[in-house]
Design a protein around this nucleic acid. Structure first.
Lengths: 143, 143
DNA sequence: TATATTGTGAAAATCACTTTCAACATGGAG
DNA sequence: CTCCATGTTGAAAGTGATTTTCACAATATA
């Protein structure tokens, strides 16, 4: 699966006439082996540990490319930081966010998605995307 | 209803040992008689028309107070601007956002809310708030 | 009304990106 | 393999939207 994403990104690079670079490879590896919801800053710091010479701007630009290529998606949880999550082919999910410890849990609910479509139809809207986030305390933090 | 919110805010001010000022009154009036989803900038500009002497920082701080007092709520639609919407006692709603013209439609759906609770329970979460936004084209923009 | 607090506005500071630019890589042409 | 037209980098400057600071003004008791 990491393999698959690497291929997707490589193909994207080629298709766009871009170049394959050492930095992009390193950032891709770090991204693929990271938490599913990393901010630019977090990934940047993680990278710096092993590669003191990679710049923030490069991480920033590369994550944008990941999103463009389809292997990542930008998300915002309202904490002022843009995060990038891994995208699994054809899969969609929403999030449960713990307001105390920051834990993020993903979930899917077909019925909710259907109801959203109904709501949209009722109002004449054609949905392109949606965002559903449930904020609260996770099991651990409730105690 | 405007009356009620004014009272809530006045009580909040008193409770917190804050002061009632001309600016706060003016900003509250402008907020209550405005669109349901105003950004700080928008409200600021609207105010400047009649009150050239009110500062941006004051509008910013006052809107925060509104949110704290419970008569307003901060929302983000991912366009980089924080907006403030009116909060009706005990009411909750979600949003349909037109990605072309920016129109915002509010809706409520009891069934979706219930399902959200179920999802949360399944994962051991205790929900405090949630955010559901459907992005797409409104009726007008679809044509 | 005296005065201890709080509020205000202009300007400076933050934050989280974004863009610029000179110095470096890449990869297809020859 | 060597060129070199293009892309890519990293440091630093620029942006846009807040946030905070600070000197002066307005409030609300005592």
């Amino acid at each position: 699966m990491k393999r698959a994403k690497k291929k997707i990104f490589r193909d994207f690079i080629t298709l766009k006439g871009l170049k394959s670079t050492r930095q992009r490879d390193i950032i891709l590896d770090a991204f693929l082996s990271s938490d599913r919801h990393m901010s630019i800053e977090e990934l940047y710091l993680k990278l710096r540990a092993k590669n003191p010479n990679i710049g923030y701007a490069t991480v920033y630009r590369t994550l944008k490319l990941f999103a463009e290529s389809g292997i990542a998606r930008e998300i915002q949880f309202g904490d002022g930081q843009t995060r990038y999550e891994h995208v699994a082919e054809g899969e969609h999910h929403d999030h449960l966010v713990c307001t105390r410890c920051g834990t993020i849990v993903e979930f899917e609910n077909e019925t909710i998605e259907k109801l959203q479509q109904e709501v949209a139809s009722t109002h004449g809207f054609l949905i392109e995307t949606h965002k559903l986030e449930l904020y609260g305390l996770c099991e651990k933090c409730r105690k």
